[in-house]
Design a protein around this nucleic acid. Structure first.
Lengths: 206, 206, 206, 206
DNA sequence: ACGTAACCGAGACGGTACGTCGGGTCTTGAC
DNA sequence: GTCAAGACCCGACGTACCGTCTCGGTTACGT
């Protein structure tokens, strides 16, 4: 349930209220003061908690942020996530990507997500936890949607689903994280179309 | 030539030797101690320079790193970069991406590039400078290679080149920055193939 | 026991070892490098203490110096000081003043005492603490010696003891602090004689 | 005319206007911001002068302050100072001391004089210059007044004039610099009386 | 039911780095 | 060659946090 890596004290005696207060405080501060000014000291103060309680249970600031996201994502739903499946893959992908960029353009989520993304970029162990617990389930849902499309002949049979997923979401993630271009619905639609069709000329129509 | 943003002192009186020493020290330290332990104090000490000289000319640690990259990229060549063009687009892309992941797997470049990438992620103004001065020329070279392929009928005539470029390099960049998967030649080859062909089934053989 | 003036943290949690190390380091450095080169940073380093520990408990460099003197003066004796009383006031005063100028001519004490004196000169609050805790007891001892002489008829009955004390020690202190003349035993003897006799001609002998 | 100690550039080419501007700025700043916040940089800025111009002609901040005083004292009068001589020594001393404490209680003079006094306390060379050029003439005037009183039998014939002067002004100076007591006219009157009469009982009436 | 051992809040501590101020030196261009 | 201007190297300032370390107090087991 957490990102802890090494030996920690008896989890049975852990105070759940403090844990939640810390994660909530961390996420809230991330929104309010931004990543650069986020400090353990600040989190402890906001959570009404001693600093040691944070150091006792988390090895780094990044893991606290990670767990904060974990708490949120699991609080939202106990079940694994799924992508909409109306039978029309292109339409479904367009809808999902549009929703994604709306979130990315919302400063309420933008700041914390950037914080998590850059912590991951600098911490391999955290990245592993991210891949397993946060990104993994979501990516599986994406693959599953593509698999479903494969079954009805909308995607090539021999398609590499991992690469396919990265080809759809990668450009969007990159634009967001590196700010290399505007994130609009028009843009994500183009990404979907181009990914589905490929770069090469198509022999027949469509 | 630099990432400065607001009013700065008279650049005519600036000492060029100090500027170069600072940027070199910054890049070297980035490789040696890593981003997390990179400090203005450390850069100044290594460069044999007063801290004030750094604060006088750069508004943030990120802009120093950025300028360090700028100095390197401009020191390497005065002309804009170009991608190889053998006439075989797929082969050329495979070669370029393979070279890219080799660099990404080299800790000598990995650390500093991550530092730049995450600084950009947190600083919109720096991102704008990055897009204009570092990423821009490179991206133009990529577009140009695709344009060349378009001319010889290897790519669709109505292809959106920006999206196309992002679809090829985006997945690789993401895997690298977020560590969501291994960066191998085999992987980049698959990316090239999948991007060129698209996700949908192709009517006839390839 | 200290020169603190405004609200400070819980003194119960204060580490006595650090307090002593700081005051000792301050006094030692005062002797070694002199007042002009005395820095909080230097004191902290010498004491093996974080700077914040000094800033936490003392509002200024002057109060640190003051407390260093306080520690020394209280370490020397728990009881209030007394002046020698052989029954011969003139002789006693001569002896005391001679001892005083010996100390003033000893660089071991000269430097730190000058530091304290000039800090006091620029800081009224510190001066008040000085008057109450360091100078006060000593001055009372001086007054007491004069009172004793008064009782045996060696001093005028209506003598203003405060002024009398200042008239004996003031000239010496001034010569020392302002370096307006040499500090010799011969000089202090003259001061004692002149003060006792006054400036006016004496009607009868002596 | 100045407190310079070591070799300096050709004084013939010196710009008098800058010299005066610096000394005036120094004195004014001393009054306005106080000794602790007085900086060479501040003086240069206020005087509209380059820092180098100060460093070229004065070896230390103290000597600047000293010269500022020198300029003022010589601007006031070209002739050596004299003390009033009405024939009544006690009355004259009372008047002079009263005027002195009025000045000492005036913050307009208090701050700069403290600055000078403490600079002198820490700089023997400066002290020598002070004794020779500022304190010397004044002390001679004081001695002269006492000599005059001696001539008319108001003071002992064998009186040590140096000690006598210090016994009258020393207590006042000390009270001022160390803030060991209030500086009132009543106090200075007592000092005069006690100094003239001495501490010992007088055989007959006064 | 009652120690006693752990967690907990609080926060002092030794440190590192921050961003700023000013010291004293050096360079530039105007006079 | 002096001067105004100001960049430069350097050292110290006072502050913010780091991660570690006590210090009571309050749980919550294990006997």
């Amino acid at each position: 349930m957490t990102a802890q890596r090494s030996a920690t004290p008896d989890p049975a005696r852990r105070r759940e209220a403090s844990r939640r207060a810390i994660l909530t405080a961390a996420f809230d501060l991330l929104q309010e003061v931004g990543y650069a000014k986020l400090s353990i000291e600040g989190i402890a103060a906001r959570a009404g908690v001693g600093k040691q309680t944070i150091y006792r249970w988390w090895p780094s600031k990044g893991t606290v942020i990670f767990d904060a996201f974990l708490m949120l994502s699991e609080g939202a739903a106990g079940e694994p996530p799924t992508l909409p499946d109306t039978g029309d893959l292109a339409a479904d992908l367009r809808a999902v990507l549009r929703a994604t960029v709306v979130e990315m353009n919302d400063p309420r989520y933008d700041q914390p997500m950037r914080a998590l993304a850059t912590e991951i970029a600098h911490d391999p162990e955290l990245a592993a936890a991210y891949v397993e617990r946060l990104d993994g389930p979501l990516k599986e849902a994406k693959r599953e949607r593509l698999r479903s499309a494969q079954r009805v002949g909308q995607l090539a049979e021999d398609l590499d689903l991992d690469v396919a997923v990265e080809m759809i979401w990668g450009p969007v993630l990159n634009r967001w994280l590196q700010r290399t271009g505007p994130l609009t619905a028009e843009y994500t639609d183009r990404v979907v179309t181009t990914a589905l069709d490929g770069l090469r000329p198509r022999p027949s129509g469509r």
